[in-house]
Amino acid sequence: MNGNSKNPVVNGSGDVQGRRRALIKEKIRTFPAMPAFVAQVITMLNDPAADAVTIAGRIKFDPGMTANILRLANSAEFGARRSVRSLQEAIVRLGLKQLFQLVVASGMGRRLSKPMPGYELAPDELLRHSLWAALAAEELCLALSIHAPDMLFTSGLLHDLGKLILDEFVDASKVEIFKVAGEQKLSFEMAEAAVVGMNHADAGAAVLDQWHFPAELVAAARWHHCPEAAGEYESIASIVHVAEFLSYAEGIGTGIDGLGYHLSQEAIDNLGVRKKDLEWVASHTLDKMRDLEKLLKD
């Protein structure tokens, strides 16, 4: 499946594109699995029989994660009246949804921190962009008084995972991508697909699918630049789309591509986003971002 509504062509380069596509597919196939620990905890979180005791029993072997969970449970956000000392108690206070978010964020943090010469992102920039999108997506739901889908935070966090796959290909074809984008008036992800054979949204969705993440999350990644094509998952894809757009507008993780995407007017209309909502979300996201970055720092 291709995350584009149009199919741009690059003249006479069908073979090259096909070869690149095959290379990308191979890279997706051999992409390192989720860190084993994260995968195990996620499996436990999805297991109705697992309780705080079992989950704590697994997490306690990871000191970094244990520290993060305790810190979050004791943070002001959870209105910590009395301090929580045990991991088990912290898990109960946070709830499974928050725990899932934290496990994925801590587990993926290092991978998303790598510098990316292709997209021209400094170390940590993709992580900042991902965290911003995840937080802004939740804040947007608050601003619009709509129910935040369960997988929203994690969808925001992983929406650009495909950039890890495509960075080297984009690096090798940067000039060509911009030429095609300019000549055919294409948004970045369309020119990316036309030149390297796949866009980063599809590449990321393929990895998430391979990791057996929920369909909702895979769809949000696949359609985050074209949410109106996401079918039953249009709502979550639209929220992630607008949140990511705001991140780019604010210059968070903008790289070479950030100001080259098109806003989906359908997403804006369907969600009923107004100018003041965006400004409210931007101001609130910045503060949450600082707290979360501090939490994930070590």
Partner: peptide
């Protein structure tokens, strides 16, 4: 410096 724009035809994101 700054105040750039994103590609948004209706200008909702005219924060810059």
């Amino acid at each position: 410096a700054g105040a750039s724009a994103v590609l948004d035809s209706k200008g909702l994101f005219k924060i810059g």
